[in-house]
Design a protein around this nucleic acid. Sequence first.
DNA 1: CCCTGATTCGC
DNA 2: GCGAATCAGG
Length: 176
Amino acid sequence: MVDAGPSWTKERVELLKRLWSDGRSASQIAAEIGGVSRNAVIGKVHRLGLAGRVLKANGADGGAPAGRRPRPEAEAPAPAAVETPTMLAPAPPALALVQAKVAAAAEIALPGSERVTIMELREYMCRWPMGDPSSPEFRYCGDRSITGLPYCTHHARIAYQPAADRKRDRRVVGFR
DNA sequence: CCCTGATTCGC
DNA sequence: GCGAATCAGG
């Protein structure tokens, strides 16, 4: 006689609780437990009333009307939006442009940096300029950008510095 | 394109 | 009760 299948046994629930309170993500917990999806983990967590970790550093935000759409009877096609490379052309702040030149002159070879031309630039790619925009060698970072932001995590930190941190000018060494 | 949790609803 | 689908966001 085999068991009816892996369900939320005491063991698995306790493991879930431990991992969740330990700060593990739902997908990691799902992989750890096995046999369940990340959605299953989240669903169980909510049913257990464990949801709402005081952790708000991630994309979790209460009050968002989500959920499965209630059985669509008809579905109208949506017009396709065309996006040309020109539309993707960045308009970086002057400060960022200067810093980009600094990076280009100093240390471009960042690990994991893809570097793409404007034609290769995709919506999800980092639009941080690298090199002289007037040069044929001009490239963009091309690394995976943060969704909703034009830059990758690395360049976003540079582009979006808190006002307090920007108060003092950064000395440009070896470039002017 | 990767990822996170939150919510709803058919089963 | 379960969890896929969906949503909202980084």
